[in-house]
């Protein structure tokens, strides 16, 4: 069978969801944001909930998420997305609301908003992209930067005696009674992408069931600021980020998963 006979509309099994606009993503080559955006939009399309979905973009590389996601969105001040989402969801309890935030936004300047939205059990979804660095401002230390990891403000590596330890905010919010589903995933390999999508789907279903806050961390790369190729950065992520930020579900149906 010729290739041209395979490439026909009826044989199409995968293409970019129509809920992503045709605007070229502003992210660096190989950046995990693109996959995370797509998974979110695929879940919204598959659940057929676009007419009832409102997204919040943060300050950081994904500030322009609204240019790429073809849904109603608001852009929030740095770290305040969970407060913005709270305002929306309290007024529209039947809508689907999500925030999309990076590590600086969610785990540094927005820590209070994150913790309290989680603790109140606000019925929305937080998508947390953790790449261990401030991407947009040019690679400064993030609250999640690993011990010894170099950044433009820790050029000799993060010294935990001076800078403190990286914060595992996902484990932290999992301890709060208001969170119902907490999971940590990655999007660098096909198997991970499939699991991450399942986690995002579960998160939105938790909203549908009005069970409380659903929180999905995606451990991701920042090859530009890590100063690596995309392939190298994903390998470095597996070797260095995953031991500190282990992949998998942390809390399901309001119950913490026991780990060794």
């Amino acid at each position: 069978m010729e290739i041209k006979d395979i490439i026909k509309e009826e044989n199409l099994v995968y293409s970019k969801t129509k809920l992503l606009t045709d605007t070229t993503l502003t992210y660096c080559p190989g950046c995990g944001h693109g996959v995370a955006h797509r998974l979110l939009m695929e879940v919204i399309e598959e659940m057929n909930i676009r007419e009832d979905t409102i997204g919040i973009s943060p300050v950081g590389c994904s500030v322009f998420a609204y240019d790429f996601m073809d849904i109603d969105m608001a852009q929030a001040a740095h770290g305040r997305a969970p407060a913005v989402a709270t305002g929306i969801k309290r007024c529209w309890p039947d809508k689907f609301v999500f925030t999309y935030q990076g590590d600086g936004d969610l785990a540094a300047i927005g820590t209070a908003e994150t913790i309290h939205a989680c603790n109140r059990g606000e019925n929305f979804t937080i998508i947390f992209i953790n790449n261990g660095i401030y991407g947009m401002t040019g690679g400064q230390m993030a609250p999640t930067t690993l011990p010894g990891m170099k950044s433009s403000t820790t050029p000799f590596g993060r010294d935990v005696s001076l800078m403190g330890n990286p914060i595992k905010i996902t484990e932290l919010v999992a301890q709060l009674p208001g969170t119902y589903f907490v999971s940590r995933q990655a999007v660098h390999k096909p198997a991970n992408v499939r699991k991450a999508k399942k986690a995002i789907r579960t998160a939105f279903e938790v909203q549908q069931q009005k069970k409380g806050l659903s929180f999905v961390e995606i451990v991701s790369n920042c090859n530009s600021n890590w100063k690596m190729t995309p392939i190298q950065s994903n390998q470095w992520m597996e070797e260095n980020m995953f031991p500190y930020y282990p992949i998998g579900d942390i809390k399901i149906e309001g119950k913490l998963i026991k780990t060794n």
């Binding site: 919040i56 305002g87 529209w92």
Partner: peptide, 21 residues
């Protein structure tokens, strides 16, 4: 809706969100 926020900062951003709708 009445909500006592965790801070004034959170409160005004809740207003931002709700007003957006």
């Amino acid at each position: 809706v009445l909500l006592q926020a965790e801070s004034e900062i959170a409160a005004i951003n809740m207003v931002y969100g709700a007003a957006s709708t």
